[in-house]
Amino acid sequence: PPDDERKKAEKAARSGNEEKAREILERLGYSEDEARELAKRLR
Rank of each mutant, 00 (worst) to 15 (best):
Leu42Arg: 01
Gly29Pro: 00
Ser15Val: 09
Asn17Ala: 06
Gly29Ile: 00
Glu32Cys: 05
Ala39Gly: 02
Glu37Leu: 07
Glu19Phe: 06
Arg14Ile: 11
Pro1Gly: 14
Glu37Asn: 08
Leu25Phe: 14
Ala39Ile: 15
Arg22Pro: 01
Leu42Gly: 03
Lys8Gln: 14
Asp33Val: 08
Glu18Gly: 06
Ala12Gln: 09
Glu37Val: 05
Glu26His: 07
Arg27Gln: 10
Glu19Asn: 11
Ala35Cys: 05
Arg22Trp: 04
Glu32Ser: 07
Pro2Ala: 13
Gly16Glu: 04
Asp33Ser: 12
Glu10His: 08
Glu23Met: 08
Pro2Thr: 11
Arg27Met: 09
Ser15Glu: 15
Ala12Trp: 06
Leu25Pro: 00
Glu10Pro: 05
Asp3Gln: 12
Arg6Met: 15
Arg36Gly: 06
Leu42Thr: 04
Arg43Ile: 12
Leu42Tyr: 12
Ala9Trp: 02
Asn17Tyr: 09
Lys40Phe: 00
Ala9Arg: 03
Ala9Asp: 04
Ile24Asn: 01
Arg41Ser: 07
Glu23Lys: 12
Ile24Ala: 04
Gly29Leu: 00
Pro2Asp: 13
Glu5Lys: 07
Arg36Phe: 09
Leu38Tyr: 01
Arg43Pro: 06
Glu26Trp: 00
Lys11Gly: 08
Tyr30Ile: 04
Tyr30Met: 11
Glu5Ile: 08
Asp3Pro: 12
Tyr30Val: 04
Ala12Thr: 06
Leu28Trp: 06
Glu5Gly: 09
Glu10Gln: 11
Glu18Gln: 07
Arg41Met: 10
Ile24Glu: 02
Arg27Lys: 15
Leu38His: 04
Leu38Glu: 10
Glu18Asp: 08
Ala9Pro: 06
Asn17Phe: 11
Lys20Val: 13
Gly16Thr: 02
Lys40Val: 06
Leu42Ile: 12
Arg43Lys: 12
Arg14Lys: 13
Gly29Ala: 00
Lys40Asn: 12
Asn17Pro: 03
Ala12Pro: 03
Arg14Val: 11
Pro1His: 14
Ala39Lys: 01
Ala21Leu: 12
Gly16Met: 06
Arg36Thr: 08
Leu38Ser: 01
Glu23Val: 09
Ala35Arg: 00
Glu18Met: 15
Arg36Leu: 09
Ala35Pro: 00
Lys11Thr: 12
Arg14Phe: 05
Arg14Gln: 10
Glu37Gln: 09
Gly29His: 01
Leu25His: 00
Glu19Lys: 13
Asp3His: 11
Glu10Ser: 09
Pro2Trp: 13
Arg27Ser: 13
Ala13Arg: 02
